[in-house]
Amino acid sequence: MDDRILTRMGDGSLVETTRAQLRADIEDGTQQAVRRAKVPPLEQGELDHLEDIFCSNARFTGVDLGDEVILSYDGSGNADLGSRMTEMLAYQTHQGADMLELWHIDYSYKAIKTILSFEAHEMKMSQLNLTVPMQYGAMPDLGRYSKPDGPIPNWSELMPLGRIEEARAAQLEAGEMATHDMLFVADGMVEAGTDGLDFDTAGAAGDGDFLATLNAVEKIRAKHPHVGIEIGMASEFVLGMHGELEYRGERLAGMWPHQQVKAVAAAGGTIFGPAVNVNTRKSVAWNVSRACTLVKRCCEESTIPVHMNVGMGVGGVPMTAYPPVDAVSRVSKALVDVTRMDGL
């Protein structure tokens, strides 16, 4: 049985398949993305390349020499070395990180605002001890502003009651608070010496969450012209929790990566991180083909660097706490080779 190939599913499990089945998965993955996002399918040469990557039984793979990209290492460190500065040094020295990110386990700008002095001191001391650039990251996390965690009426409770206008007003009110908190933390971190700010999983609470982030980025860019600003998305398209919100004349709900990146660049972002969800019941090859199709147009049309989110369960990487390196290396190579993105 020469045709038998070992491959991974989206949940990380190892299965046996055939070249014909993998090709069918790759073809179907790109077509699913075309149907969803109305983007062009991958070309035959790109589908052939994916087939080659996934039909190899090699334990590991990588891009060609000269095709390497920047890795932004959102959420650097693993909280097992004793201090966050030690974690950063380990990632700089032991893992070859191109960029680092200081972060707190309560990964939300609303939470960070209350401990900014503590976090800013950690930033300052880390900057003195590091050579590679380091940003500060957290989530915009609009949901934290609604009851019972925050002061604003909970729009997810109002909507099922048909109180749509109240739900929409609540999201806007929460958004103003979130924008204020993001700007407050950004000012403190810039003063402490950060190289940049990361707004991670933007849009997690829908279009109101994304708008609050864009508004914050616009203000930060005006105030700090050369600080790095990365916006990483929560999912592949923006949920319309409000439904009518616009940024610079463009409706946010339903935006796909090639549309999201334009809003991010217009606000003043310097790095955009698209996120594509993983279907655990499909093969990694299927998921990667779909992810490549969804972000290729974004990479072609972007004016700023695109760093795809490739953590567990995102961008084709299997949804498992300990991703197998055979799968991760294939995802890494496939995304870079097919989309020519700027980083991961």
Partner: peptide, 16 residues
Amino acid sequence: VGMSLAHTLASGMGGM
């Protein structure tokens, strides 16, 4: 190993 090192070795520029 599964995340950062795998990506570093597969496609990263190697930092400093």
